[in-house]
């Protein structure tokens, strides 16, 4: 078991899957000769060559479409979109084609495509490089959407995504690529479905996904000092969503905060609260709390940016409210 960075975990998954199946290819901007903006494909071009590690022009919709077409004919493409903002350009081929081809062909065609892309705010990248969009992908039938919070899932979920027969969107985060964590030395697969209880507690449930799991964990540490025992649930997969783990946790703690870096309207938190209402409304002792980004384009100014994006203290404050301490 070695401790490696998030980007190294992704790079390792690529390399193992490229070794495992000659039909696995990688496509994206600067992923080959340049080694990838976040180093997730570093060295692969030299090892596997330009036929399999394909540097694309800046044409997101069509290179995604090319990956989709190839996937219909037995290729297993891993597409990197440099920033989730740019994925908006690929929505036609991704949502109108990849997500629908299995269905509208009556199950006769399929698109085993993997799209990896970082969402989230980093350091003053401003409105066109800071989108999150998880809520948009999770609302699309025919896609799988996963949000690895650390190196183990980043590695094991990418490997599962390559093997899976559905289109899978992996949402990474600009601020997590250097995050370190343990990954087994032996080949490991992490499932594309199922939430994970990453910290046990009995007083309140803090629900996060992707980067916001870390905000929940920090908030849980702080709550522990106040004598509040918080449970933290990592959703891991936004589509399909694991309703069962959410219900079980809330039936135990009776209180809940959902932390999302996305904006709130029609967001992940809104969906989780709807599910809680449907599945375990009478288990609640207090109203559910959403911690979310301000409903604004992300500002450039550092102070404004900080104000727009939730942090661990916001989650902590939300939890205090949920337990009636403020």
């Amino acid at each position: 078991m070695a401790e490696i960075a998030y980007w190294e975990a992704i790079r390792r998954a690529h390399e193992e899957e490229l070794n495992n199946d000659p039909n696995v290819i990688v496509m994206g901007e600067d992923i080959g000769v340049a080694g990838g903006t976040y180093k997730a494909t570093l060295g692969l071009y030299d090892k596997f060559g330009e036929q399999r590690i394909i540097d694309t022009p800046i044409s997101e919709n069509s290179f995604t479409g090319i990956a989709i077409g190839a996937s219909m004919a037995g290729i297993r493409p891993i597409v990197e979109i440099m920033s989730i903002n740019f994925a908006l350009l690929a929505l036609d081929t991704l949502i109108n084609a990849a997500a629908k081809i299995r269905y509208m062909s009556g199950g006769r065609a399929s698109c085993p495509l993997v799209m990896r892309t970082p969402g989230g705010t980093a350091h003053q990248l401003a409105a066109q490089h800071s989108a999150r969009l998880a809520r948009m992908f999770m609302s699309t039938s025919g896609l799988r959407v996963v949000t690895p919070r650390g190196p183990l899932d980043a590695y094991g979920m990418l490997k599962s995504a390559v093997r899976c027969n559905d289109p899978v969107i992996i949402i990474e985060h600009e601020q997590m690529y250097n995050l370190r964590g343990e990954v087994p030395d032996e080949e490991t697969f992490r499932p594309l479905e199922g939430a994970e209880v990453v910290r046990q507690g009995k007083d309140i449930t803090l629900i996060g996904y992707n980067y916001s799991v870390h905000l929940c964990l920090q908030a849980a540490d702080k709550l522990a000092k106040d004598g509040i025992d918080a449970e933290v649930v990592d959703l891991r997969a936004l589509k399909p969503l694991d309703r069962e783990t959410i219900r079980r946790s809330i039936e135990k703690t009776h209180r809940v905060v959902i932390a999302e870096e996305d904006e709130a309207p029609v967001g992940v938190g809104a969906e989780i609260i709807a599910i809680i209402n449907e599945d375990c409304f009478f288990a609640l002792d207090a109203q559910p709390i959403r911690i979310h980004a301000a409903d604004v384009p992300v500002p450039y100014n550092a102070k404004l940016e900080k104000a727009a994006i939730p942090n661990a203290d916001d989650v902590y404050q939300g939890a205090l409210k949920a337990v009636g301490k403020i």
Partner: peptide
């Protein structure tokens, strides 16, 4: 036909030991 109707549990789950 929305997703693969017979997915391989090795890739899909469920997640074991999620407590």
């Amino acid at each position: 036909y929305v997703l693969d109707d017979n997915p391989d549990p090795r890739w899909i789950g469920p997640l074991q030991n999620n407590e």
